[in-house]
Simulated scan of single mutants.
Amino acid sequence: MTEPLRLLCFPYAGGNAQTYVRWRRHLAPDIEVCPMQLLLADVRTRLADLTTPKDRPIALFGHSLGALLAFECARILVVEHGVQPARLLVSGHRAPHLPLREEAIHHLPDTEFLAKLGERSRTLRALTDPEFRKLLLPMLRADFTASETYAFAEGPLLTCPITALGGERDEDAPLGEVAAWQRHTTGRFEVTAFPGDHFFIDDAWEAVVTTIGERLRSRAETTPC
């Protein structure tokens, strides 16, 4: 019987971690899906709660900005809690040591920021209510500030397997840059590609969840991916 496992799930910038709740119906009952919001201070407290007691392994998944946060939380687990994750699954983001490719927008005035964000985000384009956009603005700006001011710092390599997921037509995170995540573990590594652009995480979510479920079921195996 497979040991129960917690899967910490981090959303993309402007996304809602509660979208991962639907994953519970598609993953094995021994996998506890834990949606995580993009606030590092709160995440540190939650990580402490989730690792006390150390009663089950932890895996982490994140898409886009969430991939960076999942990676940093994996490093926190190792350095601060002595917990090596069962697996790190990173999606839709280039490896963290690579430089920022796009022009930063987090510092722009509100109108310009929303216009630029609308060019990148189908989620924002779908929000036509100006009051709702105004309500979301602080959260969106905070997410993009975190992403665009992220500074990678060298640290001990992870030893857990890393699975990197990418969209075949994702211009924000081309598969070659996704493959560069291999640098960050001494363990097994693989890249899994999905049809679609940066939002394959939404368009092909069932295929993504199936892939994640397969990788987590094989967590006790010692053969290479």
Results as ranks from 00 to 15, higher is better:
residue 75 R to E: 09
residue 134 K to S: 14
residue 123 T to D: 13
residue 221 E to Q: 14
residue 43 V to L: 15
residue 16 N to A: 15
residue 93 H to D: 01
residue 143 D to R: 08
residue 91 S to Y: 05
residue 127 L to T: 15
residue 56 R to Q: 13
residue 37 Q to M: 11
residue 217 R to P: 10
residue 112 E to A: 14
residue 55 D to Y: 06
residue 202 D to M: 01
residue 175 L to F: 08
residue 13 A to I: 03
residue 204 A to E: 14
residue 7 L to I: 00
residue 202 D to T: 11
residue 18 Q to S: 15
residue 56 R to S: 10
residue 137 L to C: 02
residue 157 L to G: 05
residue 19 T to V: 15
residue 30 D to M: 03
residue 74 A to N: 01
residue 127 L to D: 06
residue 95 A to W: 12
residue 111 T to I: 12
residue 38 L to Y: 07
residue 195 P to W: 05
residue 140 L to G: 03
residue 41 A to P: 06
residue 211 T to V: 05
residue 218 S to N: 12
residue 126 A to T: 09
residue 25 R to T: 13
residue 215 R to F: 01
residue 149 T to C: 10
residue 106 H to P: 06
residue 32 E to A: 10
residue 154 E to I: 02
residue 164 A to T: 08
residue 5 L to N: 02
residue 17 A to C: 05
residue 208 V to T: 07
residue 180 A to E: 13
residue 55 D to M: 00
residue 153 A to F: 03
residue 158 L to E: 07
residue 25 R to Q: 14
residue 7 L to C: 02
residue 49 D to E: 14
residue 219 R to T: 10
residue 196 G to A: 03
residue 114 L to R: 07
residue 41 A to C: 04
residue 137 L to R: 01
residue 117 L to F: 04
residue 207 A to C: 04
residue 196 G to R: 03
residue 143 D to N: 07
residue 16 N to H: 14
residue 185 T to R: 11
residue 144 F to Y: 15
residue 112 E to T: 03
residue 146 A to L: 15
residue 62 G to T: 08
residue 218 S to D: 13
residue 216 L to R: 03
residue 205 W to Y: 13
residue 161 P to Y: 12
residue 176 G to H: 09
residue 142 A to E: 04
residue 206 E to N: 09
residue 35 P to S: 01
